[in-house]
Amino acid sequence: MIRSEQGRLTSRGLRSLVETGVQTGLGILALAPFVVLVGLVGYLIWVSIPVFRYMRWGFFSHIAWNLGNLYAYHPVLVHGVRVMPGAEFGAFAFLLGTGLTSLMAICLAVPIAFLLASAASFGVSWPWRNILAILVEMMAGVPSVVFGLFGFIVLGPAIATQVGPWLNHWLSPIPFFSGPVTSETNLLTATVTLTLMVIPIVATTTRVAMARVPRDWVDSARALGWTEHEVFWHVIWPHSRAALTGGTILGLGRALGETMAVLMVSGNALNVLPKNIYSGVSTMAATIAGQLDAALTDPTRMAVHALGTLGLILMAISLAVNLIARVVVVSDGQTDHAGGGLAHGIL
């Protein structure tokens, strides 16, 4: 199909038109990630402006979340913003709830995830380590409502009747751990449910890094007569430390943004701070999902905007966390490369 063009070296008109068309088309579609991100951030900032004008810094420090007197005849004008009389939008309880559930979940999840990664990459013998790796990845894919269901049906009752009273009995000298266990949906249930969801993420990230330690390194450590635990501590662990950090931050990101599972098991407490781990809480994400219906009844739209502000803060935190995770994981990748790089380069 070679057609002689008699030495013509310039491209034909149609061909260059197609070229330009393809490039332009792809370029426009490639704007999609920018459009989505800029759209989300821009829109949330836009709705947040009146909220901050009305609440000022009080948005971060107030505990009460109150739509105001919705039966009032007229909205009132405060700081140039129309709101219903008595409305108050304080996010402190949600910030605290998000922070507490996520951090506690991470503290529980990381040690377990570390052991899982160790077992799935190295610690247990052959068919089991593959089965374990598959199971962990499958758990990472289980939809969050299913974790919510499990937390609601299994963990909640177990915590209310067994774990909670037991913890209260043995740990009551520690202030935050003592108190009556009156509900199945509380801070502890939310934390344990989130833990289950975070473990697979941290474990998978770490396992992949551990499994990627070059075969020759492991072999040469074994060839020195080291046992499995010595090979693990001196060869595998130094290679995968950064991945555990990166995975932990990724897991934290998931815990911070988790909506459905928390909505189902946290108790969705409004206007109160948790007194102990057996109190109900609410998180920013769960509040947005749980309160949007009610917020729509506010004729001034301030309640909806206030939820958008929660979304903005949540997004800012999640983005910061994800960027940090990225930096950690990427810099890990580079050191990893430099480590094996010399030998690779020669090959």
Binding site: A30, P33, L37, G39, G257, A285, I288, L292, G308, M315
Partner: peptide, 24 residues
């Protein structure tokens, strides 16, 4: 930059998409 923006998008909590999707 594009890949970074795309990766960052993966970290946005799903409820934020839900909220903006509803309002917009």
């Amino acid at each position: 930059l594009t890949l970074l923006v795309s990766d960052v998008l993966a970290g946005v909590p799903s409820i934020v998409f839900g909220y903006v999707g509803y309002i917009v």
